[in-house]
Nucleic acid binder design. Structure first.
Lengths: 351, 351
DNA sequence: ACTCATAATGAAACGGGTTTCATGAAACCG
DNA sequence: CGGTTTCATGAAACCCGTTTCATTATGAGT
């Protein structure tokens, strides 16, 4: 029941706790004979020093926190996996804070993020990763921004896909405009002119930026955008299906759809399938994120790869640098890549 | 830089630290006037007590650990989400320990699990969830089992889908035999007699048990099992595809395939698709796990639902009960459910 | 006015380590 | 051989809260 301590070891080895500590951390020379005796006792009792006590003194815990919206969205495990690898390699453990899964009591997400920030601060984590794109300008949340900045002053903090321009917060971002542009240009190159854009929340930075990329590319190619073909309000499969059904009901149908993420694209796929519209012959679809599953749809999804793992990996590295006061750039922007697979094809001939 | 402490507050309020502590925890009456003064200072300085120091004294940290194989496998985020909800509701935070993602240095998974056990113990977590089914009889790992038992003696520990019969470790499990039986019987009821079983590792408990369920059901229905149609050695999409290609190459093909998990089933779907075999008309396929994506394949996957979220949820609840010394059964077994969707149909007529 | 219970508060111990400072012993050096 | 290092080790302070114990102030009851 009662766990054993350095004091117990010290007493049994007939030395001071200081000596035991020195053996544990190899921080000063100890006579071989003494060291052996202590090590033996440590092994015998399976003694493990209490990390709380150690951290309390050292003012470093080796613990990080990562705040993300929803582990159930397959994009995030990818990011997390990249983060995990790097964090682990550097000897950190981390708290996972899911702001959506845990949201039973209808507290809004901003509040939840702030709450977690507080909890992590209390736990004395060495650093925090925030992931989301919820912190944005389109719908500023002064309190949260304030809290984040405040937290950033108290503990190293790295934002993934978070937009907080003009601040001194470290960030790693994906070039959203470029990504959307890639997808759009690909479709245009295939001859498409009637292109829809669906999914996302206009209150979120990523959505806004992707939309900008889409619009600019259309404009640069001299193409008109049909306002009825701009459907926003969700990132789920279900929404994707709904939006696509809506598009297919219209008198003039687009020949291609740019989706705000892969989930929405899957929804589009399902709707098309149900309506008997053949993919990609009659309708081209692009996704966004390149979640692992995008290669498992039939046909395989053409999508923009955010390099989710790299995002997480880079953030972890950056955070570590900040913690250990190494030099590191304030912002790193990752270039997405277009993965051309099976859901896009040349524009069908109009009947 | 230097964070402020109860001492700073105490000094500024001209009281003892004891009084500040009492205000913080509302643990003894404090004169209103004094309390207000202290609260004001706390607000002013945004003071947050150091959880390390508090935990050190209280011998309770409010921290849990969850060890799982691979967050990138879509089954685990589901479990995690269920766990997260409940843990959060009870005021716990938790460390996530991924034994595969973080496995760069080719340390085997058993070792990694043991390592994490040690780390979590050091960090003084209040309890641990282990998830996996890696701890098994088929391929006993005496060291790990020993370590787990040892850990279980030191800290409350709940196993999800872990097999450690005859021990006093708390467990929540899915009835694997029943699940496999459900899928198999469903196919038999549809008229199938030539049924293959693919995927999984024979060294893992879940695989062994599912196989037992399959074999028993076949036998109970007086059906023969073709040993060439029992293909094991992996849980991935890729493996599923390989196995299915192998099946399709055989002179006599099965008319139905029971897959060890949804990923394998997706692979089977892809292989069939590529080979021009229509699903479900020419070949029926069942999955296992009911990952969120199983409703997004085309056609939607018939699968056995493990109720992953409930698994996580139940484990969290159980762990909490153990921690707070409430009574709780040693083992809870969840009954899986068959979700009949689009990949199974009546046996095709033999040509 | 006089107990007695209760409120209000401070001093000090405690939790389990790490580190600084001081001291004695052994080793090195010219 | 005396002086300077280096080795080896212990005592005590420190990290930052919580709790126990003791003491004084306040109020109720008779």
């Amino acid at each position: 029941m009662k766990s054993i301590t350095v004091y117990d070891i010290a007493k049994e080895a007939n030395v001071s706790v200081a000596t035991v500590s020195r053996v544990l951390n190899n921080t000063a020379p100890v006579k071989k004979e003494t060291r052996d005796r202590i090590n033996q006792l440590i092994a015998k009792h399976q003694f493990q020093p209490n990390a709380l006590a150690r951290s309390l003194f050292k003012k470093a815990t080796g613990m990080l926190g990562i705040i993300l919206p929803d582990i159930t969205n397959p994009f995030f495990p990818e990011v997390l996996s990249g983060f995990d690898k790097e964090a682990r390699r550097r000897g950190y453990t981390y708290f996972l804070c899911d702001t959506v899964s845990s949201n039973e009591d209808s507290v809004d997400q901003y509040t939840r993020e702030t709450q977690y920030l507080g909890v992590l601060l209390e736990k004395q984590v060495d650093g925090i990763i925030m992931l989301g794109g919820r912190i944005d300008l389109a719908r500023p949340q002064p309190d949260l921004v304030q809290d984040v900045l405040e937290a950033g002053k108290r503990v190293p903090l790295v934002l993934i896909n978070g937009n907080l321009p003009g601040t001194r917060i470290h960030r790693v971002m994906a070039d959203e405009r470029l990504g959307a542009s890639l997808a759009t240009q690909h479709l245009i190159d295939l001859g498409h002119t009637d292109i829809a854009l669906i999914g996302g929340y206009l209150g979120m930075t990523n959505t806004v930026q992707r939309k900008q990329g889409f619009l600019k590319t259309m404009k640069d190619n001299g193409l008109a955008v049909n306002p009825d073909w701009l459907l926003h309000g969700g990132f789920t499969v279900e929404k994707g299906r709904l939006f696509t059904e809506q598009l297919l009901r219209q008198p003039v149908r687009p020949t291609a759809i740019v989706c705000m993420n892969d989930l929405v694209a899957i929804g589009a796929l399902k709707a098309a399938n149900q309506a008997g519209v053949r993919i990609p012959d009659e309708l081209s679809i692009t996704g966004y994120d390149d979640i692992p599953f995008s290669v498992n749809s039939i046909p395989e999804l053409t999508t923009v790869s955010l390099k989710a793992e790299e995002l997480g990996h880079t953030a972890a590295l950056m955070l570590h640098r900040v913690i250990s006061k190494e030099k590191t750039p304030l912002t790193v922007t990752l270039k997405p890549e277009l993965k051309v697979r099976g859901t896009t094809a040349s524009r069908p001939l109009r009947t």
